[in-house]
Write a protein that binds this DNA or RNA. Sequence first.
RNA 1: GCCGGAGUGGCGGAAUGGCAGACGCAGCAGACUCAAAAUCUGCCGAGGUUUAUCCCUUGUGCCGGUUCGAGUCCGGCCUCCGGCACCA
Length: 810
Amino acid sequence: MTDKIYNAKDIESKWQNRWEETHAFKVDEKAKGEKYYLLEMLPYPSGRIHMGHVRNYTIGDVAARYRMMRGVKVLHPMGWDAFGMPAENAAIQRKVHPADWTYKNIDYMRGQMKRLGFSYDWEREFATCDSSYYKWEQLIFTRMFEKGWVYKKTSQINWCPSCKTVLANEQVSAGCCWRCDSGVEMKSMSQWYFRITDYAEELLIDIDDKLQGWPERVKTMQREWIGKSHGANIDFPIEGSDQKIQIFTTRPDTLFGVTFMSLAWEHPLVKEFAKKNGKEKEVEAFIEKSSKIDHKARLEDTYEKDGVFTGAYCLNPLTGDKVPVYAANFVLMEYGTGAVMAVPGHDQRDFEFAKKYNLPIKIVIQPIDEALDPSTMDGAWEGAGTMINSGEFDGLKNKDGIKAVSEHLKKNKLGGSTVTYRLKDWCLSRQRYWGTPIPIIHCDKCGAVPVPEKELPVELPHDVEFTGVGGSPLSRVASFVDTDCPKCGSAGKRETDTMDTFVESSWYMLRYACPRYDKAPVDPKMMKYWLPIDQYIGGIEHAVGHLIYFRYFTKVMRDLGMHDLDEPCKNLMTQGMVYKDGAKMSKSKGNVVDPDDMIAKYGADTMRLFSLFAAPPEKDLEWNDKGVEGSHRFLLRVWRLVMDHLDIDGETKESPEAARWRNKTVKKVTEDIERFHFNTAIAAVMEYVNYLYGVGVEKIDRLAVETLVLLISPLAPHAAEELWEKLGNGESILGKSWPTFDEAMIASDTLTIVVQVNGKVRERLDIPADMSDEDVKQSALSNERVISFMEGKEPRKVIVIPKKLVNIVL
RNA sequence: GCCGGAGUGGCGGAAUGGCAGACGCAGCAGACUCAAAAUCUGCCGAGGUUUAUCCCUUGUGCCGGUUCGAGUCCGGCCUCCGGCACCA
C-alpha cells in the first residue's frame, strides 16, 4: 500500500494548494473572536531564503497556527523590505535593472515560503519598493518637513568608501560598515536628518513604562544607546571678548578645579581663536591631523592623544581664574557642546593631558582617608569626597555639591542643570538609486520645497545608468532632476538622494493593518483595531537600529495626527542565529545549508521540526544533519502510528493511565507553545508517542490518535492535515480546535515519594495519592532501607513536602 | 574599563529551591535478516564494588554562604559570548 508511505513532497504541495484555494489564512476583521497581530521582521529579497529566515518564520508560524486553532483572529502578514544596495550592485555588475532583479527575487522567495507552509495572509503582501507604498512614506516625510522635524545640515558624517554612501550611526559597527564591513571614514557633507533627538526622552521613558514584554537585553541596549546623562551647562567668558564658551559637564562640583579648557577640533571657536592670536599654522596642522582620525581608530584607541594651544584664555565664572583654551583631539563635537572644562585633578583624561603639556593640577575633592598631592599623584581622583578649595562650597560632600553648584550657576545666570543624550539625529539621505526618492525640490528663490501631496509619489525613473561612481545616480537623469518649483513656478531641481532603507521598515507594521488604504499612510480605524503588534519576532541585531526607528516613527506619525498609538509592539522575541560547524552560515565559509535542498530531501515539516527542536528560540542553533534525520524519523513514527489506527472507532476505552498521559501531554504542549518553548513541547509529544508505542497497538483509541495529530499540527502542519483527513475527518484541521486538558485527570491514584536521609535520596515509596502527611512520614520512618541508613539515630527533624518528598534529618 | 547573558554527559539540550541529565543525536549490545538498510529492544556522566539487572561514592566553571535540602538563591572569583566605551 503506497498510501501508507509518508511522501512529504506530495502531501505538502497538496495542502499548500488547498490552503491557497480556500484562503485559509485570510483574516477578516468582522469575524468573531479576539484579535492577535503576529509579525516577523521582513526579509530583504536577496534571492533565496536562508536558514535564519526558516527559523524566524517557523517560530512565528507555530505561534500563529496555535492561536488560529484556539479561534483567535490572527493577522499574520508577510512582505518585502525591498529597497537596498544589493539590487543596485547587481545592476552595476550584471546590467540587470534593480527593479527587475528585486521583483524576480521576491517571486522566487515567495514560492519558497509557500513551500514551507507558512500561514501568511498573502492578500496583504506588499514590497516597500512599490510606489503605492513609498508614496505614503514620502507624504510622511513632507509632513515632517513642514513641522521642522526633518532638516538638512552639514557635518562630519560616516562615509562608506565601498558602498559610496553615508551611513547612520546605527549602521556603523566597530568602526565598520554594517553591510560590507569596510572601514568607515569621516567626511563633511550636507545631509538630511530626522530630529529623533527630540524624542529621546519619550523613547527612554517608554522603555520602562510600555515595553514590559520586551527582553531585558534589548531594553538595556536601547537605554545605553540613548545614553541620557545628567549634568550642567556652564558658560565660560572669553578674555577680551563678549563671547562665551559653553561647556557640558556631569561634574559641576569640580568647577573650582578647572585649569584649562578643551575644545573639539571642529568647534567654530578654534579657528577664530587661532586667527586672533596668530596661531593659525599650529592649529591648522592640528585640525588636519585630527580630522584624519577615523571611526575605527577612535574605537581602537590607536591614535595619540594630543592638542594645541589656541592662544585664547577664558575665565572661570566662579573664581575669575584665567585658563588657557586648547583644542584637543579626544573631545567630540557631537556630544554635549563640543567643549569640555578640564579638571586634571579629577578626570583621568584631563590628568594625562595636563601632564603632557605641563598644565597645573588643582585638587578640589578630598577623599575621606587620603590626602591628595598633585605633585605625587599618578592618576586623577574620580571618586567621592569632600569639596575643598571651592570657596563657599568647601566642606560639602561632592554629591551635594553637584546640585549646589548647579543651583548657584542658575541663580547667577552662568549656566545650570541640563541633560545630554548620546543619541544623535538620524541621517537619512543616501547617495544611491534604489531607495525612496526624497520628495523635495530645490528652488533658488524658495529654498527646499516639499513636493505637494497631489504630486506624490515622486517615482524612481526607470532609465538610469548604473556605473557605481560619481554620486547619486539620480543626479545624472536630467528628466528627473529638472522640474518646476511647486511654490513659485520657476525652475527647480529635485533632490537626488534617496532615503535610508530603514525608513521603510519603520512604519510597515502599521501599514499591514490596511495595506490597500488609499487616503493616507494608515487607516486610523484599522490601526486601532490591529495595533499594537501582539508578538514581534526577529533577530537581535536590530536591537538599536530598526527597533528604535520603528518606535520613533510610530510616535512621529502619532504626533502628525495619523493615529494615536504610542508604541508599535507589546511583545518582542529575538531569536538566535543559525550556525554550522561552529560558525555563522555563510557562502564564504562554505557551510550553508540550503532550505530548498532540505525540502527536497525530507520535506518542509521535517525542517520545521528540526529548527524548533534543536534549541530554544532565543538561543543560537547549531545545524546538525544527523539531527535533521532524527526529526524526520520522529515524523515517520507518528505517521506509522496513525496509519495503523485509521479504522478505530470513536468508542473511548481509555484507561486512567492513558487519560493521564493524554491530558498531561496536552497541558505540557499547550503551556510550552504559549511560552515559546517549542523544543520541550516537541519532546513532550515524543514522549507521548513513545508511550503509545509502548502500550501496544490494540490498546490505543481514537481520542489518543486524534489528539496526537492535533498537537503536532502547528509544528508539522502538512503531515497533520493529511493524517487528519485520512482519519476520516472532512474539514481541514485548521477549523478544528486545539485540544483541551482536564487537570483532574492528570492526577494519579498513587504517587512516588522520595525519601531522603540527611538530604540524600535513599528510597522511593509508592503511596496512595490521598495519604496524609503524617502517614507518609510514618511509612518513611518505618521503611527498612531508610532505617538502615539512619544508623540507629533518632531523627532531629522530619520534613514532609506533600506529594513529593520526605527528608529525615539526623 | 562599564553593563548584560551564559557556563550541566561525547554533542544539542531538560529540570515552580525537592529523584540532575527529560527528549533527541552520536555510540555500544541484542532482536529481525542469508546479508545490509530500515525497524524494534536494552545500555549509555565519572569512580568503586559486585558482575544479578544489587549497591556505594562523587558529579551542573571555581571558592565560600543561606537552607532540612542549591544546577536553581546570596557574596567573591574564572572563562566565553553580546552590547557600550576618551560621552566630559
